[in-house]
Design a protein around this nucleic acid. Structure first.
Length: 592
RNA sequence: GGGGGUGUAGCUCAGUUGGUUAGAGCGAUCGCCUGUCACGCGAUAGGUCGAGGGUUCGAGUCCCUUCACUCCCGCCA
């Protein structure tokens, strides 16, 4: 028998009545009736009500004790009378009559209550994270995270994947996000970088002949935070397979995610086979490459309508002539919505930095009601209704501008309108694949051709038939998984052919020398017999966030940093001694 | 780097058009209470109203500057 406990705080039941037991835990709550004191004792597993009265010599001592003090209780299990059973806790049929107790850990006055459903400012939650983590909801989120990761490990092992660790101190990668750098003492003036992902290593693992690899891999990117993006570090289920085509990866990951989401959530999956949407289609229909498919609204292009003579909307017509696009969203059955519904959306659009959203409602006899309705002839309206599948009683919102601008504002408007009309079913998970990413894109500022995603991806099509003169028309075997509008992972079939790699990099402006310098490990390896291979890397934090039904990634992260990438509990980052800097051959030159 | 929101007691918040001594609940301290499970009742302590400057007879409230937190844009192969 352990000196601290015979049972956990969620173990005692009616069958234990009469037992002498020992419990240890935190004082969750006290209810002091003067001559009778109830103490809810809490541990990781649950809560047990303990009771003591003034007959006991320890009574007055226990009456004074602070909440969240850690104590050990010795006592006997009593059956509660019918009226006093608490159905809300699993140990609610019994209580423990305290015979003696011992303080194991004292507690100062709390900076924030633990037993409370209130929301607290994140500043205080992060500073006292160990107190915050005692609270039920986040405590359970973190346990969920652990279970999800264990489950994924088991599934991956069953599928024949081997788990390997890859280096944390590695070299800076020239593409992508900003690196975290670590100065090297033994190599003055040189720096390691923390890996943004084990991208090159996992490919090298394939070249080394291991066939199927996975890792719950820490990834480090020095970019600004968002609600679904921790600053600094996050975790991916990194995986890679040899001798596979795109479909092989899809089959493995689809099955894994379906099993995981079915096991850990009661929400329904819209489809266990994830629909595939091409990148270009996604941008047209949803305005984004991470569409929320729970949202039934679809964006349509009606640019051509504004070249008709019987459309008099001159501002848009002029913009269209100079290359702008017009895209629209149909909101069904909104004829009777109050004016405020429309004004509200227009105001919202202006808050987003747009010039506003034009709209009209289609009334009977195909007439357009609304501020800009008068600019459209009956024939033009009929054409719009044909393109957009709109009917009488529906409203059409539309925006005009350069392609990227229209995509962005219609994408946001699609979310906004669906939310306002309550069209999103929160009890669903809607997965999809986004496929067929362009290999290159043109940087509109520099007019240069750049890799649009991962430079190591395999271009699509027969290799001897690819037209390298038209780089913007080359697509890659590159794919993302999106769930409920959250980008969960991206992956690719890799380019394992060195000559092809040089060719593609040359299009993006890197000569052979550049490639050899920057990716020496990779490019060398590929020239000694590399298998065709590919992989993907689902984000663990975001998966758990969806499963826990949280909107913020910090709710499923044990010790997150704040938005300014500071750890308020550990005081990181911090100053270092002059001696440490000197050892690293560094001196500081701070901006004022 | 830019835009929005927030900042009042240890915690969560209220505070009217600028007007007396800035309030409530929880927590803390003290007292009362033997069946509560958000126990109840009474009392006490606790405030640089984020900071600085300005307007005014008078500022938590209006103006300017600044800081912190947060959400978003940029950024995130």
């Amino acid at each position: 028998m352990n000196r601290y406990r015979t049972h956990t705080c969620n173990e005692l039941r009616e069958k234990n009545v009469g037992n002498n037991i020992i419990l240890s835990g935190w004082i969750n709550k006290k209810r002091d009736h003067g001559n009778l004191l109830f103490i809810d004792l809490r541990d990781n597993y649950g809560v047990t009500q303990c009771i003591i009265d003034q007959e006991n010599s320890k009574f007055s001592q226990l009456e004074k004790i602070q909440l969240e003090t850690v104590i050990k209780i010795q006592g006997t299990v009593l059956k509660r009378s019918n009226e006093t059973i608490n159905k809300d806790i699993e140990t609610g049929e019994i209580e423990v009559s305290i015979k003696s107790f011992e303080i194991l850990g004292t507690c100062k006055e709390l900076p924030m209550p633990v037993f409370s459903d209130q929301e607290y400012a994140e500043e205080i939650r992060l500073k006292y994270r160990y107190l915050d983590l005692r609270r039920k909801k986040i405590h359970e989120n973190i346990i969920l995270r652990s279970r999800v990761i264990s489950f994924i490990r088991e599934e991956m092992s069953k599928l024949g994947f081997l788990e390997f660790q890859t280096p944390i101190l590695t070299s800076s990668s020239p593409e992508g996000a900003r690196d975290f750098l670590v100065p090297s003492r033994l190599n003055p003036g040189k720096f390691y970088a923390l890996p943004q992902a084990p991208q090159q290593f996992k490919q090298l693992i394939m070249v080394s002949g291991f066939d199927k690899y996975f890792q719950i891999a820490p990834c480090f990117r020095d970019e600004d935070a968002r609600a679904d993006r921790s600053p600094g570090e996050f975790y991916q289920l990194d995986l890679e397979m040899s001798f596979v085509e795109q479909e092989d990866i899809f089959n493995v990951v689809e099955k894994l995610l379906v099993n995981t989401f079915k096991k850990f959530s009661n929400k329904k999956l819209i489809s266990e086979k994830f629909p595939k949407i091409s990148y270009l289609d996604a941008l047209l229909k949803y305005g984004t490459d991470k569409p929320d498919l729970r949202n039934p609204l679809i964006i349509n292009d009606i640019t051509n309508i504004f070249t008709r003579d019987d459309v008099k909307f001159e501002i848009f017509k002029k913009l269209v002539k100079s290359g702008s696009k017009v895209r629209c969203i149909v909101a069904k059955n909104t004829k009777d919505k109050p004016r405020s519904f429309f004004d509200n959306i227009d105001k919202w659009a202006k808050d987003q930095g747009a010039s506003g959203l034009a709209y009209f409602t289609i009334d009977k006899d195909v007439t357009a009601k609304g501020p800009v309705g008068k600019f459209f002839s009956k024939e033009a309206l009929t054409e719009i209704m044909k393109i957009t599948d709109a009917g009488v009683g529906d409203s059409i919102f539309f925006a005009c501008g350069k392609k990227e601008y229209v995509e962005k504002i219609t994408s946001l408007a699609r979310d906004k309108i669906a939310n306002d009309l309550n069209l999103i079913d929160e009890s669903l998970f809607a997965f999809c694949w986004i496929v067929d990413y362009p290999m290159f894109e043109k940087n509109e500022d520099t007019k240069k051709i750049e890799f649009s995603h991962n430079p190591f991806s395999m271009p699509q099509g027969e290799l001897d038939k690819i037209d390298f003169e038209k780089p913007l028309e080359i697509f890659a075997y590159q794919y993302d998984i999106v769930c409920n509008g959250v980008e969960l992972s991206s992956g690719a079939i890799r380019n394992h052919i060195p000559e092809l790699m040089y060719k593609l990099f040359s299009i993006a402006g890197y000569n052979k020398q550049d490639v050899d310098n920057r990716f020496s490990g990779m490019i060398n390896a590929l020239s000694y017999g590399a298998p065709p291979h590919g992989g993907i890397a689902p984000g663990i934090d975001r998966i758990v966030m969806l499963l826990a039904n949280e909107k913020n990634i910090r709710e499923v992260t044990m010790f997150p940093m704040n938005q300014n990438a500071q750890d308020l509990m550990m005081n990181a980052p911090s100053n270092v001694d002059e001696k440490q800097l000197k050892e690293l051959s560094l001196s500081l030159k701070l901006k004022k």
